[in-house]
Simulated assay, not measured.
Amino acid sequence: MVERIRQLIEYTGLSASQFADRIEVPRAILSHILSGRNKPSLDVILKVISNYRTINPDWLLLGEGEMLNKVAAPVAPESPVTIVEPIHEAPDQAAEALRDKVQNSITHETIALADSNPEKTVKQIVFFYTDNTFSVYGPES
Score class of each variant (00 low, 15 high):
I45M: 13
S79K: 12
E64A: 13
E140H: 10
N56Q: 01
V44F: 06
K101P: 03
W59C: 04
P26T: 09
L34Y: 08
D43V: 05
L34N: 02
D21R: 13
Y11Q: 11
L8A: 13
P26V: 13
R6Y: 02
K47T: 05
D43C: 00
D115H: 06
L14A: 02
A72F: 13
A73N: 10
L46G: 14
V48E: 11
V71G: 07
I5A: 11
R53T: 15
A94G: 12
R22H: 14
V84Q: 07
A114D: 00
A72K: 13
S15I: 12
L30E: 03
I33Q: 03
F19M: 04
V44Q: 01
I125H: 08
S116N: 03
G63A: 07
M67S: 15
D92R: 13
H88P: 09
S35H: 06
S116L: 00
T82N: 12
Q93V: 04
E89C: 09
S50R: 15
S15T: 14
D58F: 01
A112I: 00
F134D: 11
F19V: 13
P77I: 05
I9M: 05
R53G: 14
A76Q: 10
F127W: 15
I33C: 06
V75F: 06
S135K: 12
R4H: 15
L60T: 13
A28P: 01
I5Q: 07
I83M: 01
E119M: 07
A20R: 10
A95Y: 00
V75R: 03
T110S: 13
L61G: 08
G13E: 00
N56Y: 00
S31A: 12
L46Q: 15
K120W: 05
V84M: 09
I125L: 05
P40M: 13
P139S: 14
K101Q: 03
I106V: 10
M1C: 01
R37L: 07
E66S: 10
T130G: 15
P86M: 14
L98D: 15
P86N: 14
A114M: 02
N117I: 05
T82Q: 11
A73D: 09
E78Y: 08
Y129V: 03
I125G: 02
I5V: 10
N38T: 05
P91Q: 03
R99D: 01
G138N: 05
A28T: 09
S15A: 07
N104C: 07
N117S: 11
N117F: 02
V71P: 07
G36T: 15
E3L: 15
K101S: 01
I55H: 14
I29D: 03
N51C: 08
A90T: 13
N132Y: 04
A112S: 00
S135N: 04
E96M: 10
E119F: 05
R27V: 01
I45Y: 04
V102R: 04
F127K: 08
L34V: 08
I33S: 07
E66V: 06
T107P: 00
A73E: 14
Y52I: 08
I45C: 02
V75T: 02
P118N: 08
Y137K: 12
K70H: 14
L8Y: 09
Q93G: 01
R99H: 00
I111P: 12
